[in-house]
Amino acid sequence: MKKQLTIAVSGLNNTDNPGPGIPVIRALKDWKGIDVRIIGISYDHLEPGLYMHDLVDKSYSVPFPSEGADNLLLRLEYIHEQEQLDFIFPNFDAELFTFIKLAPRLEAMGIKTYLPELEQFEERQKYRLYEYGEKYGLNVPKSTTIHSISEVPEVLKQFEFPVVVKGKFYDAYIAYNQEQVYSYFHKIQAKWGLPIILQQFVYGNEYNVTALGDGKGNTIGAVPMRKKFITDKGKAWAGVTLDEPALIDMTKKLISASKWRGGMEIELIKDKNNKLFLVEINPRFPAWVYLPVAAGQNMPAAAVKLAFGENVNAFTTYDVGKLFVRYSFDNIVDLSDFQKISTIGEL
């Protein structure tokens, strides 16, 4: 493998709802023996990562995937001409489908990715998670997908309050009565569209695991975390690594059964009887992925190695009781930088 790599990374929105881009970049920069040049790809001129010049070497605006895969590919071809990309690390849920579809064409251009296969990506969607659990023998709280608000009264007969009302990609609210279900349905529909998922609420503690699968059923890395401080958007602002074998076992079972390829985050709830429920699978590394790196498992770097066909041994240990604590920081930016990215789409 080359000793110098040029890697494009998206998800540079390091706000109070942070994307995984900046932590992924920190992980790649920590990669010993490999000199990594980072190309930021951004969908918004105010994504903070654009202006973090100590981490991002050059940035380009790209069109939203919703504008069509061909438009995105055209832009990536241009960026590739300028930068000779070796690898692309897409980090937004909403762009992954397009990047998975583009992966063979990117590979033909000489740009590697390390993403789940399309069926792996699709079958773990929130609205299919209950069937996913049945298929792979994993406990998943009962859930149903609805496409119209008129379905609510009938569907609610299958549930006990409280229920969780979830968007297709993002957002989840706990509803304690039918009126709240209606209210959250409208709120989520307005932001993320349909369908809406209703899921049985499970009382218990929530746990998260960052993991990396090699596509052959092997778990290359897995580090569990418990959120210690949660923002009003439900995002972890602080968390700690755990020593809980049951969380690792469930992760390995999932990766082994699904032959997952790439990074992932799984969200689990342990109820009062210590029974674990899988409540969500995010098909990419989470925004807290630098915590596992600091605890001893550099999974983003391992993902790139795997993409290049390197032999990667599974991580076997990590530091337990390692904390992350986020902070906000006012990065001072010259208008000329904002002007460049706004007008010519490059910085």
């Binding site: 503690n205 975390m225 418990r226 210690k228 968390g239 700690v240 755990l242 020593d243 809980e244 337990v320 009781g321």
Partner: peptide, 19 residues
């Protein structure tokens, strides 16, 4: 077995992250 306690009375449960 995995409960840790420090000299200054900080108790950490590594299975739940509670302290």
């Amino acid at each position: 077995s995995n409960i840790a306690v420090s000299d200054n009375g900080f108790v950490f449960d590594p299975a739940t992250g509670d302290s």
